[in-house]
Simulated scan of single mutants.
Amino acid sequence: MLEKYRNQYRCFNDDIQGTATVSAATIKRALLKAGKEPSTSRVFVVGGGSAGCGIAS
């Protein structure tokens, strides 16, 4: 739905986009604190629900 109506309506899905935003920021910060480059690191996402898919994309 987000992709379909992206250019027609202002949409925000907190389960997909909100969780993904917080997760991405947390992962990025943890990698930087560990002295690792985010661009050369791999992240494994467990779960195929909407939140997991949002984090992965």
Rank of each mutant, 00 (worst) to 15 (best):
6 R>E: 12
57 S>P: 00
8 Q>K: 15
50 S>K: 05
1 M>D: 09
3 E>P: 06
20 A>C: 07
11 C>L: 14
45 V>D: 12
3 E>I: 08
33 K>D: 01
14 D>L: 10
46 V>F: 15
46 V>M: 14
32 L>P: 00
19 T>E: 07
21 T>W: 08
22 V>K: 09
49 G>R: 03
40 T>W: 01
52 G>Y: 06
4 K>N: 09
8 Q>W: 01
23 S>F: 05
37 E>W: 00
4 K>S: 02
53 C>W: 01
32 L>D: 02
54 G>A: 11
33 K>G: 00
45 V>P: 11
48 G>D: 06
54 G>M: 12
47 G>N: 07
1 M>Q: 13
3 E>T: 12
57 S>I: 10
56 A>Y: 08
28 K>H: 15
37 E>K: 07
47 G>K: 02
55 I>W: 02
39 S>F: 06
53 C>I: 06
3 E>G: 13
9 Y>K: 04
9 Y>T: 06
7 N>M: 07
19 T>K: 11
25 A>C: 11
47 G>V: 07
31 L>H: 12
31 L>F: 11
10 R>L: 05
37 E>M: 06
46 V>N: 13
53 C>Y: 02
11 C>D: 03
51 A>K: 00
18 G>D: 08
20 A>Y: 03
44 F>S: 03
39 S>T: 12
44 F>T: 15
11 C>H: 01
25 A>F: 12
36 K>S: 04
31 L>D: 05
14 D>V: 14
22 V>Y: 11
42 R>F: 12
30 A>D: 07
15 D>C: 13
34 A>F: 09
56 A>H: 09
51 A>T: 02
29 R>C: 02
36 K>V: 00
12 F>S: 11
35 G>E: 00
10 R>A: 06
4 K>M: 06
19 T>I: 11
30 A>M: 13
28 K>C: 07
35 G>A: 00
50 S>A: 10
22 V>P: 01
19 T>M: 08
55 I>C: 13
50 S>C: 05
20 A>R: 07
17 Q>I: 07
20 A>K: 04
8 Q>R: 12
5 Y>P: 00
32 L>T: 08
45 V>Y: 10
31 L>P: 08
1 M>V: 05
40 T>K: 14
44 F>H: 01
36 K>E: 02
27 I>Y: 14
20 A>P: 03
16 I>R: 12
40 T>E: 09
34 A>D: 11
53 C>Q: 03
16 I>Q: 09
43 V>Y: 03
23 S>K: 03
12 F>K: 14
4 K>D: 11
46 V>H: 09
55 I>L: 11
16 I>G: 00
29 R>I: 08
26 T>E: 02
28 K>R: 15
51 A>E: 06
18 G>N: 05
42 R>H: 14
41 S>L: 04
34 A>G: 07
45 V>I: 15
31 L>C: 06
20 A>N: 04
19 T>R: 12
23 S>A: 14
28 K>L: 12
16 I>H: 01
42 R>P: 00
6 R>W: 05
